[in-house]
């Protein structure tokens, strides 16, 4: 007797439904820019918390405008766009926390001389893990691409010899900006396709 969850395909479809219109990608792209900017100006990380709440609400609003009248409304026990926003926040905050610790014990905090080059690896790994979990649970191929891009970008921005004008802190920022660019381009493409292929259905007028 196999013990797999018989409702798993339905759970998967419900998760996919929440991410089908591409608005989550756009919201996460916007937040990745904010978190990337906050890695340059650390005081902005507190502001990023406010943006997290605002973008979670924006995500709900966008879904209501774009998806609800096309594919229906479903509220899940967990909110996938919010989980992705939290992952992005964690990628920024945890990486900066590690940098703060390392630089604190080696002189003035945030000192670029002691800022490690491998910070994109930490942030990229967290982002890749978040995208991978989403891709697996929702069976959405484009999230596998995001996970691969996060991992690849992490290695690239860690190892690529940019020259003296790009400091270790910029490497981390560039990773977030590059991921934001990918999410934005992909999100727009998904959204346009979604709107073109899913017509707005007539208002239901209370069916039951």
């Amino acid at each position: 007797m196999h013990t797999t969850d018989p409702l798993r395909p339905l759970r998967q479809r419900a998760l996919r439904h929440a991410l089908e219109d591409g608005t989550a990608d756009l919201v996460v792209a916007a937040f990745a820019v904010i978190v990337g900017g906050a890695t340059q100006n650390r005081s902005l990380i507190a502001l990023a918390t406010v943006y997290l709440a605002i973008l979670a609400l924006a995500s709900r609003f966008l879904r209501q405008q774009v998806a609800d009248r096309r594919i229906g409304y479903a509220e899940l026990p967990e909110d996938p766009p919010k989980a992705l926003l939290l992952t992005t926040m964690a990628a920024g905050v945890l990486t900066l926390g590690i940098v703060a610790l390392i630089t604190f014990f080696n002189g003035p905090i945030w000192n670029l001389e002691h800022w490690p080059d491998w910070t994109p690896l930490v942030a990229g790994s967290i982002m890749a893990a978040g995208f991978l979990v989403t891709a697996y649970r929702a069976a959405l191929p484009r999230y596998y691409v995001y996970a691969a891009a996060s991992a690849g970008g992490a290695v690239f921005f860690w190892l690529y010899p940019f020259g003296p004008r790009i400091n270790p802190s910029d490497r981390l920022t560039l990773l977030f900006f590059a991921l934001a660019g990918l999410l934005l381009a992909s999100g727009i493409a998904v959204l346009v396709r979604f709107v073109r292929t899913r017509p707005v259905l007539p208002a239901e007028g209370h069916d039951v």
């Binding site: 229906g72 409304y73 479903a74 026990p77 259905l201 039951v208």
Partner: peptide, 26 residues
């Protein structure tokens, strides 16, 4: 089964997921 995996959903979502017609679902 469809409603058991979501907190709540609207008529359109359930209709789409189950493939039932509006009358049947009602």
């Amino acid at each position: 089964a469809c409603l058991s995996v979501v907190s709540r959903a609207d008529f359109l979502y359930v209709m789409r997921e189950t493939g039932l017609t509006q009358g049947n679902l009602s």
